[in-house]
Design a protein around this nucleic acid. Structure first.
Lengths: 343, 343
DNA sequence: AACCGGCCTGCAATCGATTACATATAGGTT
DNA sequence: AACCTATATGTAATCGATTGCAGGCCGGTT
C-alpha cells in the first residue's frame, strides 16, 4: 500500500490533525490533550511512522551522536569501555560513533572535521594526546561541541575527565611487591609524554622512595602499552647485570609480552621475576600465570564518561569546575607475584 | 567576528555567487568553471565553512552512517574487525555507528529502529543470530537499508556476507592434530544454533571421519566462545574416563579458558593435552604456551565487509547473487600442540 | 453580557544544503 | 547574420520535522 516511508504529514492526515500536533504528541506528549494524543499515536502505529532523524536533527540543530576517539581500536582494554559508553548513550537516545585516532594522527585536520562539522554533539576522547594537536590548532570556538576525556586526560586539565587513581594504583602495586620482599623493582612504563605514564611512574617512584628505595635508571623500561613493547622490555631485562626481582608494568598487555618472552628464554614467572600489570583486562585472570594486576573499572569508566557527556549536552551542568572524576582501582593478587626467593 | 557557524549562504555572499554554485563547487567540482571554483574555495576557506551534515543528509535522503552490530563489544576478536571497517568506511566519508546486540536481544524492536529509522544507510551485522528476530518480524520492505554479514551469516543465505572458510579451518586443525598422532580428539564448539559452530563442527567431523575416526559424543564439549565456557569445558574434560589427547576449540578465548583451568589442576599444555584454537587474536602468540590456532584475517574481514557495503550503497552492484565472499584461513603452529607422548 | 486566562490546536516559517529547471553567455556553423 | 550547442550559473522548490505565534474554545469572574 504505502510505497514510501510515511512521514509526519501522513500521520497527520490519518489522524485528522495538523503536523504540529503529531510532532507534539510524539516529543512533548503532555502538551497535547489525551484524547488527541491517543488518536495520533494510533495513527502513527497504523502507518508505521518513524521519525526522520536527519530532519529532526536539522531543525533541532543537533546530531544525536557522540563520537568516541579511541587510540587503538584493536586494544582489548578499550572494548569494555566502549561497551559502557554505548549502553549509557543509548539510554539517552544517542548514537555512538567510533573513530580510531591512528587515522587522526595521520590527518590531524580530521579532528576539526569532527569538532565543527555538525557530525557529533560531543566528543569523548580516550586519547590524551589528541588535544595537543587539537588545542594547538587553536580550536576553541564556542561552536565546538563539549569534550570529555576518559582514562587519559590533558596536562592542562582544561577538559572534564573521568579516570582512575593512577597514582594510587601504582603505589598499591609497589607496596604489594615490597611486602613480598622485593627491593630491586623495575618499572615498565608507557610513552614518555603520556599522562598515564607520568601518573603511574610518579606514583611508583613515590612509593619506592617512601620505602627508602632509590630506583636506578637502568630499571626503568620504556614501552608503549603494547604486547610488543613488553617483549622488548624482556630483552632489556635479560641484558641487565643486576636484574630487578620484580617488574611493575603499566599495562597488562606489556606484562603479557614481558612474561611470554621470558618464557621463551626458559624463565618462568613468578619464579624468575614477579610481575604486576595494570588494567585487569579479561584475559588477565586466565593467563598463565594468572596476572596480579591493578583493576580499572572499565565499564564504569565508559558509563561515567557517557553520563558526563549527557549532562553537558543537556546543559544541566555548570562548566566551571572541570574537576576530574576519579574512580578507585583495586589490587588483584594472582599468581604472577611471589615472595623473593632469597631473603 | 562571526558569531555563528557559517552556512552556505555566507560563502555565497563572500564569493559573490549563488548557493547553488557553492554547493556544486564543493560536491561536484568539475561542473563548475575553474576560476569560479577557486573563488568559492577561497571564500569557504576564509569563512571557515563546514557543511552541515544534517541538512545535506536530509536533502540527499541518506545518513552518511553505517551501523555495525556486534554480538559482544567486550570480545577482543571483534575489535580488529571494527578497526578494518572503520578505516574503509572513513575513506568513503561514512561514519561507523557501533551497537552491541546484547541490547538488541533484550529489546528486539531496536533492530527495526535502525532498519527503518533513517539512522543508518546500511547495516553490517557481525551476529548471525540477529536476522532471526529481524526476518521473523517480517522486516523486508524495500525501504530497509542494505545488510551485509561479516564473520557470521544467516542460515538461508539471503544476505551478502564475507566470512572465512570455517570448514577448511576446522579441517586444517584436525589434520594437524592427526599428523601429530592424535586419534582421540575432542571438540569444544560454540552455541548449537550458531552458524560458525555448525560450520566448524561439520568440518572437524568430516576431517575426523576422513581419517577413519568416529568421534564419540562425550568428546564434544559445548561452549559459547567465551573464556568461561572454556573453563567449564576443562572440568568436563577432567571428568572423562578416557580423555581426548587433543582438543580443537572453536575460539581462542575458549582455548585460553580451557588451558588455564587445566593449569590450575596442575596439568600443562601440550604435555597433558594438545590444544588448537580458532581466530588468532593478538594475545594468542603471547599466551603460555603460545597457541596453535587457525588465523582469520580479521582486518580484511572488516575491510571487505565495509567495501561490500559501500558498493551496495553506491548501487554499483546487482543484488542478485549474494554469493558469500570467502577469505582464506591459515594454520598457525605454535606451542600448544605436540605429538602424542605414547604412540 | 463582556471579559479574562488557560488550554489545545493549527498555520506557516524555519533549519541548511541540494538539484531540477531555466537562463545566460561564448563559440562555432552554415 | 541567424542559429545551434555546450557550458556555466542562478532561481527556487524541496527534503521532513519542529516550534513561535496566533486563534479558538471553554469555564469562571465581575
Amino acid at each position: 500500500m504505502i510505497m514510501r516511508t510515511p512521514k509526519i504529514t501522513d500521520v497527520a492526515r490519518v489522524a485528522g490533525v495538523s503536523t504540529a500536533t503529531v510532532s507534539r504528541s510524539l516529543s512533548k506528549p503532555e502538551s497535547v490533550a489525551e484524547a488527541t494524543r491517543n488518536i495520533v499515536l494510533a495513527a502513527a502505529e497504523l502507518t508505521g511512522y518513524r521519525v526522520n532523524h536527519a530532519a529532526r536533527n536539522l531543525r533541532r540543530q543537533r546530531t544525536g551522536a557522540v563520537v568516541v576517539m579511541v587510540p587503538n581500536l584493536g586494544n582489548p582494554f578499550f572494548s569494555e569501555i566502549l561497551a559502557g559508553i554505548e549502553v549509557t548513550l543509548a539510554r539517552s537516545d544517542l548514537n555512538m560513533l567510533v573513530v580510531d585516532t591512528r587515522q587522526v594522527r595521520a590527518k590531524p585536520e580530521l579532528v576539526s572535521e569532527y569538532l565543527h562539522n555538525n557530525r557529533a554533539d560531543g566528543i569523548i576522547a580516550l586519547d590524551g594526546a589528541l588535544p595537543g594537536s587539537l588545542l594547538g590548532a587553536g580550536f576553541e570556538s564556542p561552536t565546538s561541541p563539549p569534550i570529555v576525556f576518559a582514562c587519559e586526560w590533558t596536562h592542562d586539565g582544561a577538559y572534564p575527565s573521568v579516570r582512575v587513581d593512577n597514582d594510587h594504583g601504582a603505589r598499591l602495586a609497589i607496596a604489594h611487591l615490597h611486602a613480598l620482599g622485593h627491593r630491586r623493582i623495575g618499572l615498565l612504563s608507557g610513552p614518555k609524554d603520556n599522562v598515564l605514564t607520568q601518573a603511574r611512574q610518579a606514583g611508583a617512584l613515590a612509593a619506592l622512595s617512601a620505602f627508602g628505595i632509590s630506583p636506578r635508571p637502568d630499571c626503568l623500561f620504556r614501552g608503549d602499552f603494547s604486547l610488543d613493547s613488553g617483549v622488548m622490555a624482556a630483552h632489556a631485562w635479560l641484558d641487565l647485570a643486576e636484574r630487578p626481582t620484580a617488574v611493575f608494568c603499566a599495562s597488562d598487555q606489556m606484562a603479557f609480552g614481558f612474561i611470554s618472552e621470558l618464557a621463551r628464554s626458559g624463565l618462568s614467572v613468578p619464579r624468575a621475576v614477579s610481575v604486576v600489570g595494570f588494567d585487569d583486562i579479561d584475559i588477565a585472570g586466565r593467563y598463565i600465570p594468572a596476572l596480579t594486576t591493578i583493576r580499572q573499572p572499565r565499564s564504569s569508566l565508559g558509563a561515567t564518561a557517557a553520563r558526563m557527556m549527557i549532562e553537558r549536552l543537556s546543559g544541566t551542568v555548570d562548566l566551571e569546575p572541570a574537576v576530574p572524576t576519579i574512580l578507585e582501582v583495586e589490587l588483584i593478587v594472582r599468581d604472577s607475584t611471589a615472595a623473593v626467593p632469597f631473603l
